[in-house]
Design a protein around this nucleic acid. Structure first.
Length: 259
DNA sequence: ATGGTTGCCGAGCAA
C-alpha cells in the first residue's frame, strides 16, 4: 500500500498536475499540504472520477492540508491540539481501515523564518505541541505514520549547500533538536531507512535556477512508528515531477507499506 | 550577489 505526501503549493494551480500523478502512480493515500484554499473552494468535482475520498482542512490563501484516500477513513480530526487560539490549518489526522488499521497524520509544519522572531517562536511552540500530541497517539498500539512538509532539514547531508542554511529556521539547532525529540519517541525517517546516498531532495526554490543546479533540500518527510516501520517495503521521492511544466516547488515522497 | 519566482487573489504577504 502506497502512502504519499505532497506539498502541492496551491490546489487550484496544481489540480491537473495532481490528477495526472494520481493516475500514473495510484497511491492508496495522499497527504497534501499548502492547498491554499478554503474547504468550500476546494475543487472536489474535478476529482470526482478518481475514486478518492477527500477530506480537507482548509484556510483562505495560506496553508491548508488534505487527505485523499482510496480506503475508508474514520475519526478524521482537523487542527493540532494544544492551542485553541491557533487558527492556522496545518494538521489533519485519520484512521485508515486496511487489512489492519493505520493512524495517519498529515502536517504542514510552520516555516519559522525570519529567525529569531515571533514566527520562529511559533514554529518551536508548534513542534512542542506536536511532540505532546504524537506522544499521546504513540500510546495507542496502532501503527502510526506522520507525513508532510516538516520545514526541517534534519542534517547537513539533506541540503546541497548546508552553509547557506546555517541561520535559517529550517536548519537552526533549535529546530533540529525539536525534530530529534519527535524522532526519539521511536520514529524512523522512512527515506533514510531505505536510501543511503547523498543528493536526494524534496524541495527546490523557484528562484535562481535552484532546480537546474540541483540546489535542493530534503524537508518533506515520512516518519514511522516502530509498528509501522515493521511494514516498510520501500520509500522513494518522485523527483522527476519537479522538471515538468508548472511544477510545485516540492515533489511527492511515498512509502510502500505491507498493510 | 541581499537578487531571484510563484500562488493566492486582486495588494502585498508567505514561502
Amino acid at each position: 500500500m502506497k502512502v504519499a505526501t505532497f506539498n502541492i503549493n496551491g490546489i487550484k494551480a496544481r489540480a491537473e498536475t495532481l490528477k495526472s500523478w494520481l493516475d500514473e502512480t495510484s497511491p492508496e493515500i495522499v497527504l497534501l499540504q499548502e492547498i491554499k484554499s478554503t474547504d468550500e473552494a476546494f475543487p472536489h468535482e474535478f476529482f470526482d472520477d478518481t475514486g478518492y475520498m477527500i477530506r480537507t482542512h482548509g484556510q483562505k490563501s495560506y496553508n491548508g492540508v488534505a487527505i485523499f484516500s482510496k480506503l475508508s477513513l474514520e475519526d478524521v480530526q482537523c487542527g493540532l491540539p494544544g492551542n485553541p487560539q491557533d487558527e492556522q490549518a496545518r494538521w489533519i489526522e485519520a484512521t485508515v481501515i486496511g487489512r489492519r488499521a493505520l493512524k495517519i497524520c498529515g502536517l504542514y509544519l510552520p516555516n519559522g523564518n525570519p529567525a529569531p522572531g515571533p514566527k520562529f517562536d511559533y514554529k518551536l511552540d508548534w513542534m512542542e505541541r506536536m511532540l505532546t500530541h504524537v506522544r499521546n497517539l504513540m500510546s495507542d498500539e496502532m501503527p502510526l505514520l506522520l507525513a508532510g512538509d516538516f520545514n526541517v532539514i534534519p542534517q547537513d547531508e539533506d541540503a546541497k549547500d548546508p552553509k547557506s542554511w546555517i541561520d535559517d529556521a529550517l536548519a537552526r539547532p533549535e529546530t533540529r533538536t525539536a525534530f530529534r525529540r519527535i524522532l526519539n519517541l521511536g520514529f524512523t525517517d522512512a527515506f533514510r531507512a531505505r536510501n543511503f546516498e547523498p543528493d536526494h531532495y524534496s524541495f527546490w526554490d523557484y528562484q535562481a535556477g535552484a532546480w537546474q543546479k540541483n540546489n535542493g533540500i530534503r524537508i518533506d518527510h515520512i516518519l514511522l512508528s516502530p509498528q509501522a516501520t515493521d511494514l516498510l517495503q520501500d520509500c522513494q521521492i518522485d523527483t522527476e515531477l519537479r522538471g515538468r511544466n508548472k511544477p510545485s516547488d516540492h515533489v511527492p515522497v511515498w512509502v510502500d507499506l505491507d498493510l
